[in-house]
Design a binder for these strands. Structure first.
Length: 925
RNA sequence: GGGCGGUUAGCUCAACUGGCAGAGCGCCACCCUUACACGGUGGAUGUUACAGGUUCAAAUCCUGUACCGCCCACCA
């Protein structure tokens, strides 16, 4: 057994065990293994990505689920991969080119794409390396990329199927256009940001009577150059007479009609709306209703085009400023008001999005949404926490068609071809040589590529080789739980569900666990631009990956946002150091035995489990308890404290399973934390120092064996949270052979009271130890109250409560004495509280018989205060019990509980009163 | 404009189906007790945002208010 270093040096991904996991393909799932599959898809990070806390939170949760299920013996597959992130990646590469003074057009499509692939070769794996440092145990051999050949094939296949079903169509519509990225965006990619803008009131003179004018209000005055009409509500009395009249559009000096449309809200602005069909979705609709020809006044780069007359070439915002000045100078600007409204921004570059009329490809979503809606409505797919069901359903019910074409180069090119000869348009796999209709070779492919999400939405099955049917796809689809953030419910989750039903005929996953957003401690979202992000790499360096994972889970309540600051990670670091030191303690104790009895089997043998968790036979089944260990050490009966720790361990095992099953990762982490620190370390290790230090060899070995049993279980319970250190300790403690990993150690199963009893765990002993702990706390308080230094030897006398307590205490005297570091601990049924400090415990009254140390007045006051407090709570209990409604309506067990409390409170008061009487007797007066 | 979440100890947050409001950090006192000072022992700290209501019983359920934060939305 390798000795543990005194200073805890956190194991890392560079360490021995992780490398071996990878070498041995421990994470590799195989269909032929069969069994009960458990699949998780890692949300593929962008190739351009670098690891941030959101990733860390996301993958830690998944890794916990995966390692837990792996230890349970499931056929586990965790699919990793990266996303080509069309616009984002293209932007990154273009930025690099710009530094060389070039644009993508200088290179041309082919050469540019070559550059992007080179970039991805060089930097695309950064995030994967970073993920490994966190200990994520995904199936690295299956790594996929959305631009891989297989996945690209799936994209083409899906496009063609939808195209043939007429669910994909091409048309001229108003889309969100990013003038910086030069591409269309989907509605989801345009993020609305509340902005303090201006509302400009502009006078449009009447043609017939230039002295009169109609005032329209607009937030984007530059678009007036594309106005083709002004609309008013047909019911609006103010304007009824103007309907059908002509106005002169200022600056452009064009004639435009006044039209009537129900869309116009008479309450807003002036009740008259300028109609600009080429630059506003509502106006586009109005224009269509009235047969008006749209007039495009802008270029793709956001500068005005030749239709803008004198403003041609001006940037849209520059144009706005100058145009307003001109209007003002001409007396056509009525007023400017402040106006709060939501403005769309490009989700990749934050540029203000321009609604723009253009020819794009769309997916008709309503038919796809139907089964996906049903799946969540019926509960076949569940969101956790539940409230996201509503968000999802709401979006799906109001789903709009999806704009999937992008005017960039990096991505899956739209597999549609056009014939220059006959005008034929068709979708095809591969590169056709000629038009299928007229056989002309004069064909060209559509220039656009598909939205990145058009490949991501196929991830649950494209990663398994779809459309090819194979054993992997059959076994591992559908997956189990999708773990992700709320930001991509619409982008990704909803679309995967739709694709799953459409192309696989089945849901892609059963559960969607939505975790919170990682924020800094002032509640702001962590982001590079704010400079408030905590770099997981730095945390790993300073605190270890295990500490990062453990701390994250400790502070993350289910589905709530996480507020982080550096010091939060001390929780995990301190805890894991504590664990390490507990291991050192056990190991040092083990060595003592080696030294003392050289013929005994080594400490490794001590780790023999008492309970059948070997993975063979029925889980949790008992093997004959207390298999003799080594030679000449017969099994002994368990001490009360050992029974106690085994009972608590069993409770912890049960609690872990329950919390994991409910995705309550913080409660899971907390219950292990509490058990390790406050049960095992605070009490059991302190307790066990006596038997381990005693000369009784058999007792020592037996105590040590229980320690190892409990500690091995702790490591297992902790492994999903802290994989590195638990693996390290698993081996260093000798629990696993050289080639065995804790990942394959069977997950502990709770035994329950009955089976525990067969092991020799008596609930009465468990109850006694609980009271013993309370007694020890009472004694320590007593000593503190009396200002006796903890190093001074103290003599305690206890007068036991009853015969049972007397027997238990007498048998356990030495242990209590040791835990108190007392000079003496005497059990005396006849002890009378002489001139002594005294206190009450569940097992009996305790005294420290030291004359002269007693401040009688203070003692009386102390007890009187206690009595008063007790009287208060007693009164509250009485009030309840005297309330006929309470007794009549509350459940019987709640009433019984109150009665029990009253009984206890009364008994306690009586005892305190007696003590006060006694103390008063000492009173000098 | 619609929807969702939050408001609990000095700070950051828990408290699953109503039944004695908890943890970590910080704070105070004492302690280098041979696993651990990234530690040990003990301690202090709450009108659960506010106002009503339901109930024997409310941090928890209902109604409303205030503030903070998200998401969605074509009122120019």
């Amino acid at each position: 057994m390798p000795e543990l270093e005194k200073n805890y040096d956190a194991p890392t991904v560079e360490g021995k065990w992780y490398r071996e996991w990878l070498d041995k393909k421990l994470f590799h799932a195989e269909a032929r293994r069969g069994g009960n599959p458990f699949t998780i898809l890692m949300p593929p990070p962008n190739v351009t990505g670098i690891l941030h806390m959101g990733h860390a939170l996301n993958v830690t949760i998944q890794d916990i689920l995966i390692r837990w299920r792996r230890m349970e013996g499931r056929n586990v597959l965790w699919m990793p991969g990266t996303d080509h992130a069309g616009i984002a990646t293209q932007n990154v590469v273009e930025r690099a080119l710009r530094k060389e003074g070039k644009t993508r057009n200088d290179l041309g499509r082919e050469a540019f794409l070559k550059k992007v692939w080179e970039w991805r070769e060089q930097y695309g794996n950064t995030i994967l390396q970073q993920l490994k440092k966190l200990g994520v145990s995904c199936d690295w051999d299956r790594l996929r990329f959305t631009m891989d050949e297989g996945l690209s094939g799936a994209v083409t296949e899906v496009f063609i199927r939808l195209y043939d079903k007429k669910l994909i169509y091409r048309g001229n519509y108003i889309i969100n256009w990013c003038p910086r990225c030069h591409t269309a965006l989907s509605d989801e990619e345009s993020v609305h940001v509340d902005t303090r803008g201006k509302l400009y009131y502009v006078r449009y003179p009447l043609r017939e009577d230039s002295g009169k004018h109609l005032v329209v209000a607009t937030t984007r005055p530059e678009t007036m150059l594309g106005d083709v009409a002004v609309a008013v509500n047909p019911g609006d009395e103010r304007y009824r007479a103007l309907i059908g009249k002509k106005l002169v559009l200022p600056v452009a000096e064009r004639e435009i009609p006044v039209i009537a449309d129900d869309f116009v809200d008479p309450e807003f602005g002036t009740g008259a709306v300028k109609v600009t069909p080429a630059h506003d979705p509502n106006d586009f609709a109005i224009g269509n209703r009235h047969g008006l020809q749209p007039l495009d006044i802008m270029r793709p780069d956001g500068k005005m085009n030749e239709n803008a007359g004198q403003y041609a070439g001006a940037d849209r915002f520059d144009c706005r400023r100058r145009l307003v000045e001109q209007l003002d100078a001409e007396g056509l600007l009525e007023k400017i008001e402040d106006h709060q409204h939501a403005v769309g921004h490009c989700y990749r570059c934050d540029t203000v999005v321009e609604p723009r009329l253009s020819l794009q490809w769309f997916v008709k979503m309503k038919p796809l949404a139907a089964p996906a809606l049903e799946a969540v409505r019926s509960g076949k797919i569940e969101f956790i926490p539940e409230r996201w069901n509503g968000v999802y359903l709401d979006w799906m019910e109001n789903i709009r068609d999806w704009c999937i074409s992008r005017q960039i180069w990096w991505g899956h090119r739209i597999p549609v071809f056009y014939c220059g000869a006959c005008g034929n348009e068709w979708a095809a796999r591969g590169a056709p040589g000629a038009c299928p209709k007229c056989k002309s070779g004069n064909i060209r492919q559509d220039e656009d590529v598909l939205d990145t999400w058009f490949s991501s939405w196929l991830w649950p099955f494209s990663t398994f080789g779809w459309p090819e049917q194979n054993p992997d796809l059959k076994l591992y689809y559908p997956t189990d739980t999708l773990v992700t953030a709320s930001e991509i419910i619409f982008f990704w989750v909803a679309r995967m569900i739709m694709a799953g039903f459409e192309f696989m005929g089945e849901l892609p996953f059963r559960k969607v666990y939505i975790h919170g957003t990682v924020r800094d401690n002032t509640g702001r979202k962590m982001s590079k631009s704010l400079g408030n992000s905590i770099d997981p790499q730095a945390i790993i360096k300073d605190f270890s990956a295990d500490a990062l994972r453990f701390s994250l889970m400790m502070v993350t309540a289910t589905g709530q946002d996480v507020f982080l600051s550096n010091d939060k990670f001390e929780i995990g670091r301190n805890f894991l150091t504590k664990l390490w030191n507990a291991a050192r303690f056990i190991q040092m104790s083990g060595k003592q035995i080696d030294d003392a009895s050289p013929d005994a089997a080594g400490p490794e043998a001590l780790a023999l489990p008492m309970i059948n968790d070997s993975g063979k036979g029925r889980a949790g089944q008992l093997v004959p308890p207390f298999v003799p260990v080594g030679q000449g050490f017969p099994a002994l009966s368990l001490t009360p404290d050992e029974q106690f720790i085994l009972a608590r361990l069993d409770g912890t095992i049960a609690a872990c399973a329950e919390n994991l099953g409910k995705y309550r990762f913080n409660d899971y982490a907390k219950c292990v934390y509490d058990f390790v620190w406050h049960q095992f370390c605070d009490w059991h290790i302190e307790y066990v120092k006596l038997p381990l230090g005693s000369g009784d060899e058999a007792r020592r070995r037996e105590s040590l064996r229980i320690m190892h049993h409990v500690f091995a279980h702790i490591l297992k319970l902790l492994h999903p949270l802290a994989p590195f250190v638990t693996e390290e300790l698993w081996h260093k403690m000798g629990y696993g052979g050289e080639d065995e990993t804790i990942q394959n150690a069977p997950w502990p199963v709770p035994l329950g009271c009955e089976q525990l009893a067969r092991l020799g765990v008596d609930q009465r002993a468990v109850a006694y130890v609980e009271m013993k702990h309370e007694l020890i706390r009472v004694c320590r308080n007593l000593r503190t109250d009396c200002d006796i230094s903890s190093s001074a030897g103290v003599r305690y006398i206890i007068r036991p409560e009853n015969d049972e307590a007397a027997a238990q205490l007498s048998a356990d005297r030495d242990s209590i004495k040791a835990l108190l570091r007392a000079e003496a601990f005497e059990v005396d049924r006849a002890a009378a509280p002489q001139k002594a400090l005294n206190a009450l415990s569940p097992l009996g009254a305790v005294f420290i018989p030291i004359e002269g140390l007693v401040d009688v007045e203070r003692e009386i006051k102390k007890h009187a205060d206690q009595l008063a407090k007790l009287a208060g709570s007693l009164a509250a209990i009485e009030r309840k019990l005297n309330n006929a409604d309470f007794v009549g309506k509350a459940p019987p067990e709640v009433v019984a509980l109150q009665q029990e409390r009253r009984r206890e409170a009364l008994a306690q008061s009586e005892k305190i009163r007696r003590v006060i009487d006694l103390l008063s007797g000492f009173h000098p007066g």
